[in-house]
């Protein structure tokens, strides 16, 4: 997909796949093109060039049928707040040509824990409840594709967790879920794959775990020694120091290496030979955030 707004390229030759039963996180800084991508896939914004195929249908050629196959949730619940939850969901069910929406709505509100407030005006709902109502709206026609654009924005941690559990349960129903977010913690917890976009282009794509472990492995050691002795020992061993800092009478040493088996053994031997006391040595686990920041930095360089 390519999408231009005047001379601004919101998306440039962006291509990725979201399969049934999979959660793909579309990550990127503000203005990266995440929302534009989700709106094109939802069939509400036409691509300037290229196409998006949803459940076998082209958004270019068959946007109305694409829309009927997608459920879209945005960062703002965007509800008609003077309506009750029941009328609101019935209204959207009819727009989506759901014949007998009653049982479907009953099932959805039960799933969302909103049964008790079914006849209450949406204006009286809390932010979390409103977002749940928006998700119920997106699911009222049982779409095979769910597009979640920053769904957890402004939710408290408890509600965010409930939302995550809900999204995971929807994956179990074999839906294809695209989660546009810059909440890396949320993406790390629930996504199967990650697509990172920056300035309208995909800069990295792959399974979440693979992305986290990508790059040179890094290590951290806690030592009791003189800083000069440590530097001298590591220079002898041929290991490049990433960071060496002192705190509370201890030194914290960080380094990266392509060959941990060889270089770490050599480094530790040199440190021990120099009389350095080693308190701990750990392999550092990269969070998705670390990986993301490194990838964005790399792409901009």
């Amino acid at each position: 997909m390519t999408r231009r707004f005047g001379s601004f390229n919101a998306l440039s030759h962006t291509s990725f796949v979201v399969r049934s039963g999979e959660i793909v996180a579309l990550l990127g800084p503000n203005g990266a093109g995440k929302t534009t991508a989700s709106r094109i896939i939802a069939g509400i914004l036409a691509p300037t060039a290229g196409d998006a195929v949803v459940d076998g249908l082209s958004v270019r050629e068959d946007a109305p049928r694409v829309r009927a196959r997608c459920g879209l949730v945005t960062d703002s619940p965007a509800l008609y707040e003077r309506m009750s939850l029941r009328s609101y969901l019935t209204y959207f069910a009819r727009l989506y040509d759901v014949m007998s929406p009653g049982p479907r709505i009953a099932g959805l509100v039960e799933l969302m824990g909103l049964t008790d407030v079914l006849d209450r005006k949406l204006a009286a709902f809390s932010r979390g409840m409103k977002q749940k109502a928006a998700i119920a709206r997106a699911l009222v026609h049982e779409p095979p594709v769910l597009l979640l654009d920053e769904p957890a924005t402004a939710l408290d941690p408890e509600m965010s967790q409930t939302l995550r559990e809900l999204i995971v349960s929807l994956r179990a129903q074999d839906r294809a879920i695209l989660l546009c977010t810059h909440d890396l913690d949320e993406a790390q917890r629930i996504s199967d794959r990650v697509v990172i976009v920056d300035r309208g282009r995909i800069v990295r794509e792959g399974p979440t775990d693979e992305l986290r472990s990508a790059g040179r492995p890094s290590f951290r050691a806690e030592l009791v020694a003189d800083e000069a002795a440590v530097r001298a020992a590591l220079r002898t061993a041929g290991v490049t120091i990433g960071d060496l800092s002192a705190a509370n009478g201890r030194l914290e040493l960080r380094w990266t290496t392509d060959d941990p088996a060889e270089n770490n053994t050599r480094a530790l031997r040199a440190l021990l030979d120099a009389g350095v006391r080693v308190i701990s040595v750990n392999a550092e686990t990269r969070s998705l955030e670390d990986a993301y920041l490194a990838i964005i930095k790399e792409s901009r360089q």
């Binding site: 939802a42 965007a78 707040e81 727009l95």
Partner: peptide, 14 residues
């Protein structure tokens, strides 16, 4: 302003 246009436009309505 209320951002309710997006869900409406996302529905299969001409």
């Amino acid at each position: 302003e209320a951002q309710t246009l997006v869900p409406l436009l996302a529905a299969p309505i001409a």
